[in-house]
Simulated scan of single mutants.
Amino acid sequence: MQSVEEIAAVNDPGEVGRDEHNKGDRLTVLISNLFAWIFPILMIAICAQVFLRGAGMNQAWLDDFQWWLYGSAVLVGIGYAVTTNSHVRVDILYDNFPDKKKLRTEIFALAWLFLPFIILCWDVTIHYAVASVVADEGSDSPNGLHNLWILKIMMNASFIIIGIAAWSAYVRNLSKLMKPTLSRQLIYAFPSTMFLINLIAFYAIWWFIYLTSPADTTAREVGRSAIFDEFEVGVYDIKYTIVISLVLTVLVIGAARFLDRAARNDNAV
């Protein structure tokens, strides 16, 4: 006879290990459960299009609608899979690791490999979405589903959801090894921390230069500002913004350690 845990793993994986979930985990599960209702709508859209096409009344907008539904549901589903650990795994070595080594592997995979990739995806697709909004992009078909920019904004937003899911899963795993203070979270996810701070610093500098420059200054001219140049260190070329980001990352981690120490002192009192 199946246990309650085994039944839940099939019917509602989001309830498995709920006691260990943090707020980010529960938010991801909530959003994903809402988006799961897209799949019945997708099935209806597919069946309707098959019927209409067979009757000689093909609807191009239904084809586009199917891709909109499928793309949105699948992208949000990635975050759900990360939270529930229900994604496809090729565990040749991992299954035989001791528990602590499994946790360290999960932490490394989430914070050093997966999360930086998600941050990169967000950075790429934000430009993709903005360009689509500016162009008021629509379907290639005259009878298709227009306002394609809605889907591209959703694509960019989905990477924020995936990022929340990845960070929450990382913190949940870290808490099984040590108390996940803010400074420890930032240190043990150093590549993700620095990458995110680098993006914030880059855009802050870019917009500051753009907004304080003459009105006829173009985006290309802003990108050619001296602050975005490189300097040589031996055989390497390093961007000034990278150095700025490294310094800011160290300062942010230092500030987090100060806050953690202050919190400990308050609790001690």
Rank of each mutant, 00 (worst) to 15 (best):
residue 169 A to R: 13
residue 164 I to P: 02
residue 9 A to K: 15
residue 37 W to S: 08
residue 68 W to F: 13
residue 141 S to P: 04
residue 138 G to T: 01
residue 264 R to F: 13
residue 258 F to P: 09
residue 29 V to R: 13
residue 226 A to G: 08
residue 256 A to V: 05
residue 204 A to N: 05
residue 93 L to P: 07
residue 210 Y to L: 05
residue 76 V to G: 05
residue 124 V to L: 08
residue 22 N to R: 10
residue 87 H to D: 11
residue 111 A to F: 08
residue 71 G to F: 15
residue 92 I to W: 13
residue 253 I to N: 08
residue 1 M to K: 10
residue 25 D to T: 03
residue 106 E to M: 07
residue 67 W to Q: 06
residue 144 G to D: 01
residue 252 V to Q: 04
residue 105 T to L: 12
residue 184 R to S: 09
residue 243 V to E: 08
residue 192 S to V: 02
residue 44 I to N: 06
residue 13 P to S: 06
residue 27 L to C: 12
residue 190 F to H: 07
residue 239 K to S: 13
residue 86 S to E: 09
residue 238 I to A: 01
residue 82 V to G: 02
residue 85 N to Y: 05
residue 215 A to S: 04
residue 220 R to K: 11
residue 213 S to E: 00
residue 211 L to E: 08
residue 31 I to K: 05
residue 88 V to K: 09
residue 82 V to C: 04
residue 92 I to T: 11
residue 157 A to I: 11
residue 157 A to F: 10
residue 87 H to Q: 11
residue 15 E to G: 07
residue 38 I to E: 08
residue 81 A to S: 12
residue 181 T to W: 09
residue 81 A to T: 05
residue 25 D to M: 12
residue 255 A to P: 11
residue 36 A to D: 14
residue 125 T to A: 00
residue 77 G to C: 04
residue 77 G to V: 04
residue 247 V to I: 15
residue 212 T to H: 01
residue 29 V to D: 13
residue 59 Q to H: 08
residue 15 E to W: 03
residue 9 A to G: 09
residue 260 D to H: 04
residue 180 P to C: 06
residue 148 L to G: 03
residue 12 D to C: 07
residue 210 Y to T: 02
residue 83 T to Y: 03
residue 199 L to R: 14
residue 246 L to Y: 06
residue 82 V to R: 05
residue 75 L to P: 02
residue 129 A to L: 00
residue 153 I to T: 02
residue 30 L to S: 13
residue 196 L to T: 06
residue 102 K to E: 08
residue 114 F to G: 13
residue 152 K to T: 03
residue 201 A to P: 04
residue 58 N to H: 15
residue 206 W to C: 02
residue 228 F to D: 01
residue 199 L to H: 12
residue 218 T to D: 00
residue 73 A to N: 11
residue 63 D to W: 12
residue 154 M to L: 14
residue 57 M to D: 15
residue 78 I to R: 08
residue 35 F to E: 14
residue 257 R to M: 10
residue 60 A to Q: 10
residue 189 A to D: 02
residue 253 I to G: 03
residue 243 V to A: 12
residue 229 D to A: 15
residue 101 K to P: 10
residue 152 K to C: 00
residue 193 T to F: 00
residue 183 S to T: 03
residue 245 S to Q: 10
residue 78 I to S: 02
residue 263 A to H: 09
residue 208 F to W: 06
residue 269 V to N: 15
residue 251 L to P: 10
residue 251 L to N: 08
residue 34 L to G: 13
residue 48 A to W: 14
residue 74 V to W: 14
residue 94 Y to N: 07
residue 32 S to P: 08
residue 74 V to S: 10
residue 132 S to Q: 01
residue 172 R to D: 06
residue 261 R to I: 09
residue 76 V to A: 07
residue 231 F to P: 00
residue 17 G to V: 04
residue 109 A to P: 08
residue 259 L to I: 13
residue 32 S to R: 09
residue 117 F to L: 13
residue 160 I to E: 09
residue 137 E to W: 03
residue 138 G to N: 00
residue 175 S to V: 09
residue 186 L to P: 05
residue 184 R to C: 02
residue 236 Y to I: 12
residue 263 A to L: 10
residue 63 D to N: 14
residue 174 L to M: 05
residue 129 A to Y: 01
residue 148 L to K: 00
residue 186 L to F: 01
residue 88 V to H: 07
residue 109 A to N: 14
residue 14 G to A: 07
residue 11 N to G: 11
residue 230 E to F: 15
residue 209 I to W: 01
residue 42 L to G: 11
residue 254 G to E: 03
residue 253 I to D: 07
residue 226 A to V: 12
residue 149 W to D: 01
residue 24 G to K: 08
residue 35 F to M: 14
residue 16 V to M: 02
